[in-house]
């Protein structure tokens, strides 16, 4: 683990209206699997969306991997984002979703095929490659969303309640998948959840949302 944090959010004000969060500070060490634990509706998703660049940062500073992110587009932040419902592209097959980030970056067909092979094998998606999102179960959708976010090998992966909509059996299987993804990829992971047992099972670092709020004040 290097000394410089992967995420360094300092005295930040984010969100708007009822989701406005004043003076938040959050540091996530590089290489860690951090779980941010907080109750439903406390602003965890707002925080992740701000880190991704999908919401503006009203005050304070944000550095990711040592670089100032304030003026950067979501496309240039090097972040893989898996929202709560997966948010798969409804018109695309699993294969198209998995190579999407590489096609946008104009990687060669050979590179796309090689990465597709790695992800399909790692996330057990080989038999699902020609299916569309409506033909997938909840767990399969989350695995595809995870693979899509990992495709370009981002240094930071943000997971928004990735297990919350799954049944107990699928949740346990998915926890194993997340642990494998963490060990096989060199990404730092920030995983947001409201479930204490999920945090205990997966993380190398548990951050409570209350401490994030009070850290800035």
């Amino acid at each position: 683990m290097s000394g410089r944090p992967m995420i360094d959010l300092l005295d930040a004000t984010l969100g708007a209206g009822s989701t406005r969060l004043p003076r938040i500070s959050l540091q996530v060490p590089t290489g860690s699997y951090a779980v941010l634990l907080g109750s439903t509706g406390c602003g965890k998703t707002t925080l992740l969306e701000t880190l991704c660049g999908l919401r503006p940062l009203h005050a304070g500073s944000l550095e990711i991997n040592g670089q100032d992110m304030q003026a950067r587009d979501p496309a240039d932040r090097g972040i893989g984002y898996v929202p709560q419902d997966g948010a798969l592209f409804p018109t695309m097959t699993v294969r198209q979703q998995l190579v999407f980030a590489l096609r946008i970056r104009r990687r060669t067909i050979a590179e796309q095929e090689q990465r597709l092979e790695e992800l399909a094998s790692q996330l057990a998606l080989r038999s699902l490659l020609d299916r569309r999102p409506h033909e997938l179960s909840g767990g399969e959708r989350q695995r595809v969303a995870l693979g899509r976010a990992l495709a370009s090998k981002p240094p930071l992966l943000l997971l928004d309640e990735p297990l919350s909509s799954l049944d107990d059996e699928t949740r346990e299987a998915m926890q194993v998948v997340l642990a494998e993804v963490y060990s096989l990829n060199s990404s730092t992971i920030l995983h947001v959840t409201h479930r204490e047992e999920e945090a205990q099972a997966l993380s190398s670092l548990i951050i409570r949302f209350d401490s994030v709020l009070s850290a800035g004040s």
Binding site: D73, A75, I79, Y81, A87, L88, I104, S152
Partner: peptide
């Protein structure tokens, strides 16, 4: 999905 696409590049 459109927002996710923006994070994907």
């Amino acid at each position: 999905p459109e927002q996710v696409a923006r994070t994907l590049g």
